[in-house]
Design a binder for these strands. Structure first.
Lengths: 139, 139
DNA sequence: TATTGTTATACTCTATAACTATA
DNA sequence: TATAGTTATAGAGTATAACAATA
């Protein structure tokens, strides 16, 4: 099968799994993604929009819904008073960890026949492709 | 980097590319996906919902919008009068081919440094992962 | 009775344009 | 003037429940 088609199939399958995992925890896949992106640091809303690949106007509402659930809070940036940062609450940190762990476990559970060499190769290639695609300009 | 995380990164990157390609042709990514799924045969709406991983109630509206653009038509199934099938128009076939070709070209353009061996390996692994994930039950 | 597609409803995601408060 | 976040608006995707037609 062709490379592009294989990649598309895989992306669809992985996306479906991520959606299912998010749903299991009562979140949309976009909310779960935002939660996991915030976990790395405490990004500004504009930075969040970049990471999520969506418009900044979407971030306002998505954050609102997560704030309402007590998963994160808005924190004004003292260095630049135009900027607001997203900070996870204890519940948010905990849920983010659960989502990551569940997704990882589901991947592992479904790929038991992958040889250690294949696993390492795949992880390396996947990471490389992701970096390549992310770096290149939008088409 | 961990396998699950690498796969997630790659899926995100591929999804972003698919969204951008669809947008270039004036479609949402879901509409493009539906178009490409119909291309294979002339599935019923229920079958379409399965392939797209969404509820059957969504298919009605998505098909409506594509019918409105003249990309596909509804065709009653003579064998079972409850069933409606989606059939591509000439324009739909043409646009589906363009979308697939563009996506493939973008993947190729962005992966110039992959060795032929790596390319083949990646395509095989991606296809295998997709099949494994698709076959397993929803979590 | 069960299944297929539809409708009604509600919520979420998405982008464009206009606004505010800062810088 | 430029930037960060917000609001208003409109369109699209999503799922649940209820429904009509058919099997």
């Amino acid at each position: 099968m062709e490379l592009a088609e294989s990649l598309a199939s895989m992306a669809r399958a992985v996306a479906a799994l991520r959606t299912a995992v998010a749903r299991r925890f009562g979140l949309t896949v976009q909310q779960a993604e935002l939660l996991c992106q915030v976990d790395h640091d405490s990004p500004s809303f504009g930075e969040l929009a970049n990471r999520l690949g969506c418009d900044k106007t979407n971030v306002t509402g998505m954050v609102d819904r997560l704030v309402q659930r007590g998963l994160l809070i808005r924190k004004p940036d003292p260095a630049d008073r135009r900027v607001t940062r997203a900070v996870l609450t204890e519940d948010g940190i905990e849920l983010g960890a659960k989502i990551r762990a569940t997704f990882s476990a589901e991947i592992e559970r479904r790929c038991p026949n992958l040889s250690p060499a294949d696993r390492a190769h795949l992880a390396r290639l996947a990471h490389g492709i992701a970096a390549t695609l992310a770096d290149s300009e939008a088409p």
